[in-house]
Amino acid sequence: MAGLNVSLTFFFLVVGVCQALRRLSKRLLSPGAYGCLARELAGSLQLCMSCLELRMLTEIGPWGGGFGPDVVLTLLFLLFMVHGATLDGASANPTVSIQEFLLLGSNLAATAAKLLAQGAGMGTGWALTKLYWAWELTPFHLIQNLIASECSSSIHTSLHHAAFVEGTCSFIFHLVLLKLCRSYPMYRVPALAATVTFLTYTAGPFTGAFFNPALATASTFHCSGSTFWDYIQVYWLGPLAGMLAALLLYQGNIPRLFQKNLLYSQKSKYKIPKARVAARVEGDEMQWKRKEEKSNSEPRA
């Protein structure tokens, strides 16, 4: 349990440092620069370092520390609860940023800046976590350093099935995100955390259940066992296809590309009861008859 306590301390430190970085950058930078760069960089840094440490516990903890998947899944749920409460609106996920662009929520320059900040945050998080593991504060980290150079791919199924799994996870995640985007944080954050935990539990044995291209790139692209193009298909094209499918199902169209609704008919938001329509028609007919009778009764010159 000593190793688990060290990891918990690491999680608290990462969240605290990233929170301080957000507050400092909010004071020094303009709102635009903060929203597109600093906020996404801090959020990606926090997400990457936390998930890498948690992945290490997932792989080594069951036989090195004696705790099972229930501990890891509980930590995952709590971590995403904390992420949802502290990220300050950052997505730390390229597919979410691209979805905002397709929904006309941000322009091309802002989206590109977010993607660059997410990549920089994930890369920095990976480098700092490796440095932290090199200190070997626990037996977990010692074992992680020994096997780090020989890590294997997270794809444990066929390539097409792996891409389908990541795409399905992304589809479900984005569908829940779209449904809850206007909900109160007290409802949205636990729902998203529960969704991520369920998807990780279900799809983790097949692909690791990243459904976040930047996080997958930092976590598994350097491991042997799969080619770079295999990783691109599974961890980039799969989640992007799932996001597009969720957006099309929820909206009926993709606003950035076309305005016509492809799935749902455009009906009036307010429906008029049939009885009221019939009464209105009868009233129009009576008014027209009265006008006609009045015009007939008038003397002709």
Rank of each mutant, 00 (worst) to 15 (best):
V176F: 09
S158Q: 07
I143L: 12
A120Q: 02
T111V: 04
E282P: 00
R188M: 03
A194H: 05
G32M: 05
Y231M: 08
F101C: 05
R22W: 06
Y184G: 05
A120W: 02
L199C: 08
I232H: 12
F140N: 06
G64Y: 11
C48Q: 08
F210N: 09
Y250C: 10
P185Q: 10
A214G: 03
G35L: 02
V71Y: 08
A113K: 06
P185R: 13
W126A: 14
G123V: 03
D230G: 04
E298M: 09
T9D: 07
E40Y: 02
L75V: 04
E53Y: 11
Q144V: 04
Y184N: 05
H141P: 02
Q251W: 01
I147C: 06
C169I: 05
Q99V: 02
G204Q: 11
K114A: 04
G105E: 15
A214L: 10
I232V: 14
T202V: 04
F221Q: 07
I272D: 07
L131D: 15
I172D: 01
S106G: 07
S295V: 13
F67H: 04
G16C: 06
A279E: 15
F210W: 06
P94I: 08
L175E: 04
G252R: 11
S44K: 04
A163S: 11
L142I: 09
F12Y: 02
E298Y: 12
S149I: 10
L37H: 06
T138D: 01
L103F: 04
W126P: 00
F10Y: 11
Q144F: 02
A209M: 13
T9C: 09
K26C: 00
I98V: 14
F80K: 00
S30T: 08
A90N: 01
F198K: 09
L244R: 03
F221I: 10
L257Y: 09
P205T: 14
W236H: 14
L142K: 15
M56S: 01
A113T: 07
L21W: 12
T197D: 08
F77V: 01
V82H: 02
L57E: 11
P69D: 13
L137I: 01
L104C: 11
A127N: 05
L73Y: 15
I254H: 05
K179A: 14
T9G: 12
L47I: 07
L79E: 07
K130A: 14
M1C: 06
A110W: 04
P239I: 04
G65A: 08
R55M: 11
P190N: 09
T111H: 00
L41R: 03
Y270M: 05
L21F: 10
R27F: 11
L45K: 04
S158P: 08
L73G: 03
W126S: 10
A279R: 12
C169N: 11
K291G: 15
Q118W: 00
R300Q: 13
G68N: 13
L24D: 03
L215V: 07
K130C: 10
P299M: 10
T58N: 12
N296S: 15
L178A: 02
G283Q: 14
